[in-house]
Design a protein around this nucleic acid. Structure first.
Length: 198
DNA sequence: TGAAGGATTTGT
DNA sequence: CAAATCCTTCAC
């Protein structure tokens, strides 16, 4: 990972906005590496009724309680997977849901006629589908030697944020029944790859 | 052991 | 707006 590991060992509400603009790397083989610009994230943290770790540690959510720099992957609605980057200190149930990425290049099995490239990973379930992320990766570490990795923002992206050429919007999270009023969702303004507006 | 429900997506 | 679809969690 091109990021200092301690960078993720902060509260998810700090990590989530900082992850927007970073790259998610999926290494499927030597020849097939997918890179996606993270454009939308959500934070889940202790004391948050929507957090899977809100009640207690279970076999499903145990990865969230682990150290920062690993991933928490779960199945939702019986048919989609969602990818989280585990954050904060070891023992703290904290993670950042990656809700959307903008893929640099499409994997060869995706037909560009079916859907525009900027929409194929617009949504947490869709990005896991197109990047072939499932529960077999749950609790796996991020890193240069691993099938999942993270790269920091480019200098140019950072500068565009600072000059206002890119804007980060903070608002409420999507699809929840609890904690609906907590504004822990961040996305890149005017980005076509974001799952939903608002 | 059973039932309710869910951090979604898609099509009507 | 409702269905698809099944795993997890909690109650009895």
């Amino acid at each position: 990972m091109n990021l200092d590991p301690s960078w993720l060992a902060r509260p998810s509400t700090e990590v989530a906005p900082d992850l927007v603009g970073c790259y998610l790397i999926r290494r499927l083989s030597e020849d097939l590496i997918l890179r996606g610009l993270i454009v939308e994230t959500e934070a889940y943290a202790p004391g948050d009724p929507a957090c899977h770790g809100y009640r207690r540690r279970t076999p499903r959510n145990q990865a969230m309680f682990g150290p920062a720099g690993r991933v928490y992957v779960y199945i939702i609605y019986g048919m989609y997977h969602c990818l989280n980057i585990v954050s904060d200190a070891d023992g703290v149930a904290s993670a950042v849901l990656i809700r959307a990425v903008q893929l640099e290049t499409l994997p060869p099995w995706i037909d560009p006629h079916q859907e525009p490239q900027h929409r194929v990973a617009a949504g947490p379930g869709k990005l896991c589908r197109v990047m072939q992320i499932d529960r077999s990766l749950d609790d796996h570490p991020l890193g240069r030697d691993h099938s999942l990795d993270l790269e920091p923002r480019s200098c140019e992206f950072q500068r565009q944020l600072e000059t206002g050429a890119h804007r980060l919007i903070q608002t409420t999270r999507i699809g929840l029944t609890k904690g609906t009023d907590i504004p822990w969702r961040w996305y890149l303004a005017d980005c076509k790859a974001v799952s939903k507006k608002g």
